[in-house]
Amino acid sequence: MTALLEVEDLRVAFTRRGEPDTVAVDGVSFDVKPGEIVGLVGESGCGKSVTSLAVMRLLPERGNRVTGSIRMDGEDLLALSDSAMRERRGRDLSMIFQDPLSSLNPVIPVGLQVTEVLTRHRGMKKHAARREAAELLDRVGIPDPTRRLDSYPHQMSGGMRQRALIAIALACTPRLLIADEPTTALDVTIQAQILDLLEQLVAETGTALVMITHDLGVVAGLCDRVNVLYAGRIVERADRHELFRAPRHPYTHGLLGSIPRLDGPPGEELAAIRGSVNDNLPWAAPEGGACAFTPRCPRALDVCGEVTPLAERAGTRLLRCHNPVPVAEGAA
């Protein structure tokens, strides 16, 4: 199947006068097939949100440099004019944000925010749009949708707001949905509802979903393929079963080991990753390359601090490491 979205060698650097550039995304490549759920996982500062904003072309116009290519149906989104991109946003690809309260307009009723998209992108008439909006709210599981159309965002709970936001994102049946930490601000029981909803919607509509999260648990239950990001680069990519069964990159491996397991014995010492992202080395520097994870890596060799590891493919897996975790140990 051909890919719906192909991101190739995406680089985003934030520029500030008088200061060296900050590279947030450093040559990220991945693709998304129609109807597929792809995960981008990583900790704060790994570049996962910046990647999604770059794909949506929602980064501020000034103060950053985006290079590489983002192709959707073979067309480079980065080359589109602003108005052409606006046309595609909402219609072909849309986005769900972490904080539903700040992504909704607080002074406009939720219904109007849905119908706005319908009238603009699908050219619907007012009444038809309202009917359709109620249907959308119903579809994302908001009870009593007709009445809810007139509610303001602050009158809804966090979970309901996120549902409303999903309804807006779905209004034009986009072929690609990007969800940036859609459940991080929600409670677990509400998170379960929302994840369930997203999974259902993907199955019903055939929309592709890019799921951006820091939570490996969310990824494990939802995504078909998982990209693990570290310091702006993809360090490992695999099918979810493969990734969790045998994480090869020491970072992925360490991350899995450091999460307390609900189904494991309590009280055991967790295999923590030492240090913090502040210790990272630059991937590439004028003085030479390195693996950014080296100072925190339990498997680091001399070479790790000297040579930038390349992304190597082995079957469906992509790995960027000089000394990966052996399969047997990873499966343990």
Partner: peptide, 19 residues
Amino acid sequence: MTSPRGSLRPRPPTLLDRR
């Protein structure tokens, strides 16, 4: 994938050393 390099000969300071 890559075996640990023997470091008998003195090598220039790496990024890591500098760090």
